Simulated scan of single mutants.
Amino acid sequence: MTLVLVGASGTPLGALPPVEVDLPWWPEVAEVVAAVRSRWGLDVQVLRLLSTDRPVPHGGHVTYLAQVFEPPGFTLAPADADLSPQPLRAPYANPGGPAASVAWAREALGRDDVTAVQQRTWNLSMIWRLDAAGAPVAWLKQVPPMFAHEPAVLALAGGFAPGLVPAVLAAAAPGRMLLAHVPGEDRHDAGEEFCAAVAEDFHPLQAHFAGRVDDLLAAGVPDRQSEADRFARVADPFLDTIDGLGELTDDLPRRLAALEECGLPATLVHGDLHPGNVRDDGDTRVIVDWGDSIVAHPGYDILRLAEGLPEPHGLLAAWAARWRAAVPGSDPERAVTLLRPVAELHAAVIYADFLDRIEPAERPYHAADVPARLSAAVTAAVRWQCD
């Protein structure tokens, strides 16, 4: 990766020589910051992506814009980077943005012994870990306007199920929240047993809010109960290039009507419920990262949780049994089969929304996802046919 540096006032300074880091995921910048400090003795705050040599958000050569508050004591290479303002740029992607948010978090925490360590930055969030006496005490998260409802969702969910979600210590515009530290590890690649436990933890929350959708909407949670028009808009540019997509969209009215007949209610949907968004310390599980939360069909979450599992049948059967008990007369098994291609279409819409709301330099994070999810929708419709 290469860092183009700007000074405290945002003045361009030049570029550092390229350096390799091991972690290939572009939003994860903790290793980037550590590498720059180790190699050149500079403390930097990564602001945003400037360019990359590939269309997928991992690996390759990446150029970031970063801020320093003391000029380097050596000559930087000339840098040709577009630093012009962009109307869709997140506040934390501008010079001074991260520093202002870290200062807010320190004040909200009420401690002057806190060290802030940057972890992630991209068009969907900026995340810093706040340490004191060598241990994490809180996390600063800042999100763009499309995720501004996250603190309200955490408050609602935490009010019903304390401990299932991170505690919000403070929240303020623009998109800032200070979250209590959650011990444990994110459980990426966890197996079916762990996913089944998460699904069991999560069900009472969804059942609770199935009767309180108005509370969610009043808190600003996006309403995705009816997406047929959005599906058509996102699919339209790809109808000639993705075989079977036209047939799927033509059949959507029938499929959605059949899904409605299955009788499962709209409720709070996490939106990205995979094991990596669950922190586990061996005793408790805490579901994090609620920015994608919506009001929609509960099947979206169980399908996301089942992704990548070689044999998710037990997970899905237990989910269906819980919903049959909660909603007598419903047909959860048929619902989840009908929903499989719809869930892929929903994912394509979400990625298209991201692309509509981010600046051009950040588009490589998501551009390949829209056609990939549309193709996956066609595959799911063929594999999981439901008359």
Rank of each mutant, 00 (worst) to 15 (best):
V4M: 11
V6S: 06
V6M: 07
A8P: 10
S9L: 09
T11W: 03
T11I: 04
P17M: 10
P24S: 09
P27A: 00
P27I: 00
E28P: 04
V32S: 02
A35C: 03
V36G: 03
W40L: 02
D43V: 07
Q45N: 13
Q45M: 02
L49F: 02
P57W: 01
H58L: 13
T63C: 07
T63L: 05
L65H: 02
Q67A: 00
G73Q: 11
G73V: 08
A77V: 06
D80A: 14
L88T: 04
L88S: 00
R89V: 07
P91L: 06
P91I: 03
P91T: 03
Y92S: 02
G97T: 07
A99S: 14
S101G: 12
S101I: 06
V102F: 00
A105Y: 07
E107Y: 08
A108M: 10
V117P: 06
Q119E: 15
Q119K: 12
R120E: 08
R120C: 07
L124I: 13
W128N: 08
D131T: 01
A132E: 12
A133K: 09
P136E: 06
V137T: 12
Q142Y: 04
Q142C: 13
P145S: 13
H149A: 10
P151M: 12
G159Y: 01
G159E: 00
F160H: 15
A167F: 00
A171M: 05
A173H: 08
P174K: 02
H181R: 04
E185Q: 05
R187F: 02
D189C: 04
A190P: 01
A196V: 02
P204S: 12
P204W: 00
L205I: 01
Q206K: 01
Q206V: 03
A210P: 05
V213H: 05
L216C: 03
L217C: 03
A218E: 11
A219G: 04
G220V: 04
G220A: 10
R224A: 14
R224K: 13
E227N: 05
E227C: 12
D229S: 15
A232D: 10
P237G: 09
I242H: 11
D243V: 13
G244A: 14
G246H: 09
L252S: 09
L252E: 12
A257Y: 03
L259G: 00
P265W: 10
T267R: 03
L268R: 05
G271D: 00
G271L: 05
G271K: 05
D272W: 06
T284V: 11
T284R: 15
I287P: 09
I287F: 01
D289L: 13
D289G: 12
G291Q: 08
G291F: 10
D301N: 15
L303H: 11
R304F: 07
L305A: 12
G308K: 11
L309K: 10
L315M: 10
A317W: 11
A317T: 15
R322L: 08
W323G: 12
V327I: 15
S330P: 11
E333L: 15
L339P: 05
V342A: 12
V342I: 15
A348T: 11
D356A: 15
D356N: 13
I358K: 00
E359N: 08
A361V: 13
E362L: 13
E362A: 15
E362Y: 08
R363C: 13
H366S: 14
A367N: 07
V370F: 14
P371I: 00
R373N: 14
R373V: 01
L374D: 11
L374Q: 10
A377T: 06
A380K: 01
R383C: 04
Q385S: 01
